[in-house]
């Protein structure tokens, strides 16, 4: 995986979590993982399609998911109900959205998919031939791990049908 795709995700996650939680977020040691990933309690999956292609996972324990949802949505959750689930998915969405804007600024425009949430420990998720860059982040609530299985979207065009992707200039949005 191209390491230049890493920083936008780390800085977006850091900015958003720090802003929401009023504390600094620590980054743990990076590692590159070629095998498949054994799920934690909660995993948010979002794909990128475009000049950057692949999948991003955000994985965490149930306690961290409930804690993050409580902080982000400003109400106390006791369990991972539907609303808390959508809070966690939105967090993945916001981080990925901001990272994709930063990637677009660097010349890699891509679109992000809607999030899917996987709940349940011990399943195996494979990104096939994409190795994953694993980034643990530590907050006072607990740790959140980002998995990036991304590459430049050149080869994948061979696999996907030859269709035009609507170009979006994120910088001009809202004008």
């Amino acid at each position: 995986m191209n390491v230049k795709f890493l920083n936008p995700f780390v800085s977006s996650a850091h900015d958003i979590l720090s802003l929401e939680m009023h504390e600094l977020v620590e980054r743990g040691d990076l590692r590159l993982d070629h095998g498949s990933y054994q799920t934690d309690d909660v995993t948010v999956i979002i794909s990128l399609v475009g000049a950057v292609d692949g999948t991003v996972f955000y994985s965490m324990s149930k306690e961290v998911a409930v804690g993050l949802a409580s902080v982000l949505m400003g109400e106390k959750f006791d369990s991972l109900d539907r609303l808390a689930q959508s809070g966690v998915a939105e967090l993945g969405n916001v981080i990925t959205g901001q990272a994709s804007m930063k990637l677009a600024e660097a010349g890699f425009e891509s679109n992000i998919s809607t999030p899917s949430l996987i709940i349940g420990k011990g399943a195996t998720i494979s990104t096939l031939e994409f190795p994953r860059l694993v980034v643990p982040l530590t907050t006072s609530i607990g740790s959140l791990t980002i998995h990036l299985a991304l590459r430049e979207g050149l080869q994948s065009n061979l696999k996907t049908p030859e269709l035009e992707v609507p170009k979006v200039d994120f910088l001009q949005k809202g004008e």
Binding site: T39, V49, T55, G122, S126, T127, P161, V165
Partner: peptide, 10 residues
């Protein structure tokens, strides 16, 4: 456009 596939087992 479609994304790369992800395979979930279990």
């Amino acid at each position: 456009n479609i994304s790369t596939p992800t395979v979930l087992t279990g």
